[in-house]
Amino acid sequence: MTAEFEPVPAHGEPPRGAPSAPTPARLAGVEAGVVDRLHAFESDLEAQLSLCGRRREEVHVIVVTKYHTPELAEVLYAAGQRDFGENTLQGLHAKLEAGGSALESARWHFIGQLQRKKAGQVARLAWAIHSIDRTELVDRIDRVELDHAVDAFVQVSLDGQPDRGGVLIEQMDALVERVLASPHLRLKGLMAVAPLGADADPAFERLQELSARIRRVAPEADSISAGMSGDWQAALRHGATHLRIGTAITGKPVSAR
Rank of each mutant, 00 (worst) to 15 (best):
L210C: 01
E209I: 00
G227I: 07
A240F: 03
S255C: 04
A212S: 11
A198Q: 15
T250C: 15
E209S: 11
I249P: 05
P195Y: 07
I249G: 04
K252N: 13
A240K: 06
T247D: 05
I214F: 09
G227E: 07
I214P: 10
S223K: 15
R216W: 01
E220N: 06
P253F: 09
Q233Y: 00
S211P: 02
R244H: 07
V254C: 01
V254K: 15
G230I: 08
Q233W: 00
L210Y: 02
D199F: 00
H242S: 00
V254G: 00
E220F: 03
E209R: 12
A212E: 12
S211K: 07
A248D: 14
A200S: 13
L207Q: 00
A240R: 05
S229C: 12
H238I: 05
A212L: 09
T250D: 03
A248R: 14
A221E: 10
L236N: 08
R237G: 12
G239T: 10
S225P: 03
G230N: 13
D199W: 00
P219C: 10
I214E: 08
W232A: 09
E205S: 13
S229P: 14
D222R: 15
E209M: 02
G197A: 07
A234K: 03
T241N: 06
A226L: 00
L243T: 10
V217N: 06
A218T: 08
A240P: 08
D201T: 13
G197C: 10
D231P: 09
L207C: 01
A226G: 00
W232T: 11
Q233V: 14
T250H: 04
S255M: 09
P219A: 06
G251C: 10
R215S: 11
S225W: 01
H242P: 00
A200W: 01
S223F: 11
A198E: 15
P195Q: 09
L210T: 04
E220M: 02
P202H: 05
D231V: 06
A203L: 01
A248I: 06
A203T: 02
R216H: 13
A256Q: 15
M228K: 12
S255I: 11
P202R: 06
P195K: 08
K252D: 11
Q233D: 00
Q208M: 08
A235E: 07
V254Q: 15
R215Q: 15
R237S: 13
S211G: 15
G230D: 12
S225I: 03
P202W: 03
L196S: 11
F204I: 03
T250P: 09
S225M: 01
V217H: 14
G246A: 11
A194D: 03
L243F: 08
F204C: 02
G197H: 10
E220W: 05
W232Q: 09
D199P: 03
F204T: 02
R206L: 12
